[in-house]
Amino acid sequence: MELVCPAGNLPSLKAAVDNGADAVYFGFRDDTNARHFAGLNFGPDKMIEGIRYAHEKGVRAFLALNTFPQPSGWERWRDAVDRAAEMGVDALIGADIGVLDYASSRWPDLNLHLSVQGSATNYEAIRFFHENFGIRRVVVPRVLSLSQVKHVVENSPVDVEVFGFGSLCVMVEGRCLLSSYATGDSPNTFGACSPASAVEWRETDEGLETRLGGILIERVGKGENAGYPTICKARFEVEGNTYHAIEEPTSLNTMELLPELQKAGIAAVKIEGRQRSPVYVKQVTRVWRAALDACKRDPEHFKPKTEWLAELGKVSEGTQTTFGAYHRPWQ
């Protein structure tokens, strides 16, 4: 299985390459990718430098172009496809039918991956993208159980990549509008969930309040941790009970499932976190490299080492990790 690591900037890219990534993924510095945050991503010069650095060490470089252009912004996505192809990326990770259509007709030799934002949860959808645009890999949304993932792999005409570690989307990616419902901007339209400009923190008599687009997303007492406000991981009131109505602030860690993922024929494991620091990328890449190597050597006896989990625990968001949907009872 290939280890695909996040690169929000050049130092992160180098950290991933130097610590054992098989591939890195990154985006341009605008809304053409789903980690459109201030200070993140690559201008053309840094991207050329990053691709060269990766290639010199035998690491592949993927460009995320996984948001949905509207007519007024179409040229930006089209130009991004052209630039990526000219720079020699090893794959373009796209989601929008129009973008994939353009990329496959203008650059027939360009290797296309379907982003998780393409919402392909079943092999019929994957076949649609394969037959129409010649995609060669699909990243499946974080909503499938392990047995469903296996079924997809068995019937998919292309390689399947899964998320292994990092923030957990509870909703099918590419079809979640919760952020724009509160703020006007969503991953699809703007490339960000809960954009920072819509976040407000307020100290009140009832505790520290976090608001998103003016809506009270979280209220925590003294000594409690207030995480970054995403709607799906906040506490709400339903029928008189206040609780995490959608999901606790946990993050995904599937390391224990590695032998099963390997046996299922998964082609690649993706680490989430282009918005995280180079230190995060370095630690997570190093641990996952060791885990993948150990699993490949001896899948029968593979067990995550305590020190690996401790290392990952230090950089996880929230205090808990979960298998997410891979583990059926979570659903």
Partner: peptide, 25 residues
């Protein structure tokens, strides 16, 4: 869902609100 489009295989269809048609292309 786009899986339906693969099954429809050329038959005429309508797309619902969850199929992302965000641009002219």
């Amino acid at each position: 869902d786009l899986g339906a489009l693969h099954m429809l295989d050329g038959r005429p269809f309508v797309t619902g609100p969850s199929v992302n048609v965000y641009n002219q292309r």
